[in-house]
């Protein structure tokens, strides 16, 4: 019974600064197994920093990050690797390796970390590419030859091929046209919900947020200022959230001029 009630991901009072710039200032967040949470917030509010802190790519100064109820902040070496194996991530710019053909990008983890034989790995890569709507021929070309939307699909295939328990999406639809955005949203819903994967996405695209989330949290000034079910987002009663989802220039959120 214990396992059922433990959140898949839980953050308590997580803080992260760069020099004197305080980006995260005490984040509390909890995601149950199989749930899809979307964090919304303006550019430069620290959404990417939040995801990287959970994965351990960045080291927060303060707070707890629990995965399956286990504190992960101080894990190193093999114990860290075991947690990393649960994660998949789709990066904002897809972050494909441009020296490798698409199929080797998709199969990267199988080939380099899990030591699956190349033939099996390639078959699995082609199968995964098909599940994001890409044909076998795409596997042989190089990432630089693909459009932004195609790159995102390949990135998605790479993130799901090793069957992660938790998947992170960093602005999956930013920079795509509305139709391609919707294709990506559909793929995310299909790949994540159907497989029971726990998902944490960040975006400032409200159409995407509504489509792919069960729950929405808003990040502002280094804190989570509102959390609630997606159906409640229009009735949050929070002036910041209202301004953000309606995209108004006037309101409590002031435009940030400098990044740092």
């Amino acid at each position: 019974m214990q396992v059922k009630n433990t959140p898949k991901i839980e953050l308590r009072d997580v803080a992260k600064s760069f020099g004197s710039k305080r980006v995260l200032q005490g984040i509390d967040l909890s995601i149950t197994k199989g749930e899809s949470l979307v964090v919304i917030g303006g550019s430069g509010t620290g959404k990417s920093v939040l995801i990287k802190s959970i994965m351990g790519i960045l080291k927060p100064e303060k707070g707890s990050i629990l995965i399956d109820g286990e504190e992960t902040r101080h894990l190193r070496g093999h114990a860290r690797d075991l947690h990393m194996a649960k994660f998949g991530m789709l990066f904002q710019g897809a972050a494909l390796f441009d020296s490798l053909p698409v199929w080797q990008n998709v199969a990267f983890k199988l080939l380099r970390a899990l030591h699956v034989p190349p033939k099996t790995a390639k078959e699995k890569a082609i199968e995964t590419l098909a599940s994001v709507g890409l044909g076998e021929e795409v596997g042989e070309i190089y990432p630089a030859e693909l459009s932004g939307g195609m790159q995102k699909r390949v990135g998605l295939a790479r993130a799901i091929i090793a069957e992660p328990e938790i998947i992170f999406f960093d602005e999956p639809t930013t920079g795509l046209d509305p139709i391609m955005s919707d294709v990506i949203n559909d793929l995310i819903v299909k790949c994540v919900r159907d497989r029971g994967i726990t998902a944490l996405s960040i975006t400032h695209d409200m159409a995407s947020a509504r489509k792919i989330s069960d729950k929405i949290a808003m990040l502002h000034d280094g804190k989570i200022i509102w959390t609630g079910p997606t159906s409640q987002i229009d009735h949050s009663g929070n002036a910041h959230v209202d301004q953000f989802i309606n995209g108004r220039a006037e309101g409590p959120i002031k435009m940030q001029i400098r990044r740092d």
Binding site: M89, G93, A95, F108, K109, R112
Partner: peptide, 13 residues
């Protein structure tokens, strides 16, 4: 700068 190094970490490499 294109996050490929971070991507390696997420692919257990």
């Amino acid at each position: 700068v294109t996050e490929q190094i971070d991507a390696l970490t997420t692919l257990s490499t």
